[in-house]
Amino acid sequence: MTAEGPIRRTPIRLLALGRDYPRVAAAAALVLLLFLIAAVAPLISPHDPLAISPDDSYLRPLSPGHPLGTDDLGRDLMSRVLWGARASLPVAFVAVAVGLVAGGIIGLISGYAGGLSDLLLMRFVDALLAFPGLILAIAIVAALGPGLRNAMIAIGIVAIPVYARLIRAVVLQLKQLEFVTATRSLGATPLRLIVGHVIPNLLNPVIVQVSLSAGFAILAEATLSFLGLGAQLPTPDWGQMINSGAGFLNNDPWLAIIPGAAISVTVFSFNWLGDALRDALDPRLRG
């Protein structure tokens, strides 16, 4: 067998990737910027996002000291939007991690072991897929109780089938390849095979999927919070800010429109990154 196995690739060199695919670089920069905003929100927020100041309520955007204005309780909208990133991005992170780890384990076992375990695990995955994603998330949150932590768990569970199927498919494909058979016949243990050969080959499709499901996770979190099932008052959260802002559309539409724009930009960034990475890393998946 030659050094260039059919789907074995050299590890991704991030800088080279950014250079060859400017779209990946631009989208990655946008996502990094969002994470940076979430990290430094306490330092760059002009005010405490929870500080109520009835004298300053309903200030319009571009008011002195309040660049995006204030809400009905006089809380600074800019600070609340910046802090909102600290609710949304960790949810996406944890939810994707739950989906990736649980789905990954299911996919690896299912693909590697085959047989009865494959049959049973895949029926479980099919059952999860039988629920429309948002309905499943809502049902889980309804059962566990509203709140950001339960929303993360629910969205993570919704993400399990995608990873389980993706990883199983790649493992099944890899099992057929000569280098895997060769390594196995040389006496490598299953664990060594998985860690040394299977996981490195999974990186590319998984990275693409992580970015796309982070976009979904943020959208789902915003939706749950909008419905009152995610972040609870007074936590600054974009979905919940739209919900309360919707009551003031007559005179103060920015209270809903600004957090809505924040969600849209964030979800767009992750979807865009996912799309760009797919084009760059996995030409087979190009739509």
Partner: peptide
């Protein structure tokens, strides 16, 4: 096609209400 899947539908609803109703 990119915007449509990135903007939450409840937000689209609220913008429509603001522009076309309010």
């Amino acid at each position: 096609s990119v915007g449509g899947v990135s903007i939450p539908n409840f937000f689209i609803g609220i913008v429509l209400i603001f522009v076309l109703s309010v």
